[in-house]
Amino acid sequence: MSLVGTSIKPFKTTAFVQGKFVDVSEADVAGKWAVFFFYPADFTFVCPTELEDLAAKYDELKGLGVEVYAVSTDTHFSHKAWHDSSPAIGKINYYMLGDPTGTITRNFDVMREGQGLADRGTFVVDPDGVIQIMETTCEGVGRNAEELVRKIKAAIYVREHPGQVCPAKWESGAETLAPSIDLVGKI
């Protein structure tokens, strides 16, 4: 079942961010764009490559008004230890949410029941707390932060320009479409 168009569910957890432990809840997400970036586990193999790639795009995302929340079922203590020991993870300045109870992971329907691990799920949430984009990949396939940024820019554009839609491979500044009966069969 798709979660696109649904509101995020309540949660409360502790995150590791910029050398500190902080409490985070759905209330902290309200009013801004957010990315929830689920990954299976700390101290693994594909995960640090994805998180490092996302870290390289974090300033650009912040400039768009987007906050990033990486989530695994590890604790905030594990996130700190990984951040302190891994050169790739040490580059992260965004929130790393601990979810040892699996509440957030289940809220977004990416829990591997019986394993206690999250699937590789990416969710873009608008300022109203509504999921606008979701993607889930299998264990061995890493995600591309550049493509995520492109999709977020498109989602922001569509929100700010009612009646407009972004075609495939749309980039900022490119032509958009205004769906109408006149376009039917002409694309």
Rank of each mutant, 00 (worst) to 15 (best):
Q164Y: 08
T136E: 10
V165R: 09
H161W: 12
T136W: 04
L148G: 01
K169P: 00
P162E: 12
E160L: 03
V165L: 09
G163M: 06
K151M: 09
Q164F: 03
C166Q: 04
R159M: 06
P167K: 07
G142M: 09
W170C: 00
A168C: 05
A145M: 05
I152C: 06
E147S: 07
V165T: 08
V158F: 11
T136C: 11
H161F: 13
A155G: 03
E139Q: 14
V141S: 04
G163T: 07
E147W: 02
H161K: 15
P167Q: 07
N144V: 11
C138I: 13
H161M: 13
E160K: 11
I156N: 12
Y157K: 15
A168W: 13
V165N: 02
I156R: 12
A155T: 04
V158P: 07
L148E: 00
A154L: 09
E147Y: 02
C166G: 03
K151I: 11
Q164V: 07
R150V: 01
T136Y: 05
W170Q: 02
E146H: 04
K153V: 02
A154R: 10
I156V: 14
Q164S: 11
G140H: 14
L148D: 00
R159N: 06
T136I: 13
A168G: 06
E160R: 06
I152L: 10
P167T: 02
K153R: 09
N144A: 11
V141G: 01
E160G: 01
E147V: 05
E147P: 04
E146I: 00
V165D: 02
C138K: 14
I156A: 10
W170V: 01
A145E: 00
G142V: 11
T137L: 13
R143M: 02
V158W: 11
G140Q: 15
G163E: 08
Q164C: 06
L148R: 04
R150Q: 07
G142E: 08
A154H: 10
L148I: 05
V149I: 09
A168L: 13
R159G: 01
G140F: 14
Q164K: 15
E146W: 01
K151A: 09
R143F: 03
K153D: 02
P167D: 05
V149L: 08
V149C: 05
V141N: 04
K151D: 01
A155Q: 09
G163W: 07
E147F: 00
G142Y: 10
E160C: 03
G142A: 10
T137W: 08
H161P: 10
N144C: 13
Q164T: 05
A145K: 04
V158A: 13
R143V: 03
I156L: 10
E160D: 15
A145R: 04
P167F: 08
R159W: 00
C166V: 08
A155C: 03
R150M: 02
P162Y: 05
W170Y: 07
K169C: 05
G163P: 05
E146V: 04
E147N: 08
K169D: 12
K169S: 10
R159K: 15
W170K: 05
R143L: 04
E160S: 05
I152E: 03
G142L: 09
K169T: 07
A168I: 08
V158K: 14
K169F: 15
A154I: 07
T136R: 12
C138R: 15
R150S: 01
